[in-house]
Amino acid sequence: MSTDDLVAIQQLLARYAVTITQGDIDGLLQVFTPDGTYSAFGDTYPLDEFPALVAAAPKGLFLTGTAAVEVSGDTATGTQPLCFVDHETHHMRIGYYTDTYTRTEAGWRLKTRAMTFIRRSGAHDSGIPHAYKPTEA
C-alpha cells in the first residue's frame, strides 16, 4: 500500500465531504465512478439519482474522520466515520460510510458508498426504509 494512494483516497473523501456540505452537486458527482452507487434507507441508488437524493436530504455540515483504508492494486475498501450536523437545528446524525474505491484514469474514485447510522439505542442500521423515493419518470 503506497502513501501516495492513501493520500489520494483521503483527498477524494475530503472532496466528498466539502462538496456535499457546500451543495456542489457537480463536484460531488466527480468523486464517484460513472457507475458508482450510494446505499442508505434500505435501497441502493445509482449515480443518476444522487442529485435528487441529495436535494431531498437535510442540509448541513458533513464532518468526516480519517478513513481506515485497505488498498489492493487498483481497488480499495474503507470505512469512514461521519457526524452530520443539520444547519437549521444543529441536531446530529452519526454513523459511518463503508466504501469501495477504484483507481481510474482520473485518479481514485468511489465505486460504492453505504451509510450506516448509529442510533441512540446503540443499534447500527442503514436508515428508515424508503425514506427517499425517486420520482417516477
Results as ranks from 00 to 15, higher is better:
30 Q>K: 14
102 T>Q: 15
18 V>K: 03
75 T>A: 08
3 T>L: 13
77 T>C: 05
6 L>R: 13
55 A>E: 11
20 I>K: 06
86 D>G: 05
67 A>D: 08
1 M>R: 04
104 T>H: 12
50 F>I: 14
17 A>N: 12
114 A>W: 01
69 V>E: 02
90 H>N: 12
121 S>T: 15
24 D>F: 07
38 Y>E: 06
63 L>V: 01
119 R>A: 08
41 F>I: 04
37 T>C: 04
87 H>I: 07
19 T>L: 01
1 M>D: 13
46 P>E: 09
70 E>L: 12
58 P>G: 05
75 T>Q: 09
44 T>D: 06
63 L>I: 04
30 Q>E: 15
70 E>P: 00
72 S>F: 07
102 T>C: 10
88 E>Y: 06
23 G>S: 03
112 T>S: 15
59 K>E: 11
86 D>F: 08
2 S>H: 08
30 Q>F: 00
107 G>C: 06
25 I>W: 03
1 M>G: 15
50 F>H: 08
48 D>P: 01
31 V>P: 08
47 L>D: 01
92 M>Q: 14
9 I>Y: 04
20 I>A: 04
101 Y>S: 03
54 V>F: 01
121 S>P: 10
44 T>G: 01
111 K>I: 00
88 E>I: 00
53 L>C: 01
95 G>W: 04
68 A>W: 03
96 Y>H: 15
87 H>V: 11
64 T>G: 04
38 Y>I: 12
49 E>T: 06
